[in-house]
């Protein structure tokens, strides 16, 4: 199914459309949220907010501005960051990068009741640490490329090509051609 077909289907807004949206994306949005909040129960609450938000704001999604996936990941990140900020820590977003998704996979694997991380763990560990950092900031934490380039102290152009190489490696590991 193409993204446009999917959006059309979801826009019908019946229960089946919701099921489709949930089956397709809940798990990955949950991954994004957990990477920021690091607490399963609170992440579940945020995921609920996020799914409701996506559902209610669907008419505002504009395909000309970006991918549907990008739009919903952005909603998930922003809600998670709001939640994170509302917590006692009150840290700046720049401090969110203390732990990245590799850490979150390890935490989950050690909890022993997690299903999804087991399969992917061995792939992710093969990614270069520099790649983990870049993907974490740009994808999971939602930094703009300018913010990420400042944070990692590498020029924009280098960041772009390095990130491209990282995603290329990720695709090879996950066998997405």
């Amino acid at each position: 199914m193409t993204q446009d077909e999917l959006v059309t289907l979801i826009n019908k807004k019946d229960e089946q459309a919701f099921d489709y949206l949930y089956d397709m994306y809940a798990q990955s949005l949950f991954g994004v949220i957990e990477n920021i909040i690091k607490n399963k129960a609170q992440s579940e609450d945020v995921l609920q907010e996020v799914m409701v938000k996506i559902w209610r704001n669907l008419p505002q999604y504009d395909p000309e501005k970006g991918r549907f996936f990008t739009w919903i990941v952005n909603i998930a990140r922003n809600s998670a960051i709001d939640k994170y900020r509302s917590k006692a820590y009150k840290k700046e977003r720049q401090n969110l990068d203390a732990n990245n998704f590799v850490h979150s996979i390890e935490t989950h694997a050690s909890l022993n009741n997690q299903v999804n991380s087991i399969g992917i763990e061995k792939f992710i560990k093969k990614l270069k640490p520099a790649c983990n950092k870049i993907i974490d900031l740009l994808f999971f934490k939602g930094f703009t490329h300018k913010e990420a380039s400042e944070n990692l102290k590498i020029p924009l152009g280098t960041l772009k090509t390095r990130n491209r190489a990282c995603i290329h490696e990720l695709r090879n590991l996950l066998q997405v051609k």
């Binding site: 949950f30 957990e34 579940e44 995603i167």
Partner: peptide, 21 residues
């Protein structure tokens, strides 16, 4: 393809999502 890889990565890092959610 890029999107699919990121989609899988994100799902892969998530812990198990109970049906109650």
């Amino acid at each position: 393809a890029i999107e699919l890889a990121l989609h899988r990565l994100a799902s892969g890092t998530a812990s198990y999502l109970p049906a109650t959610n």
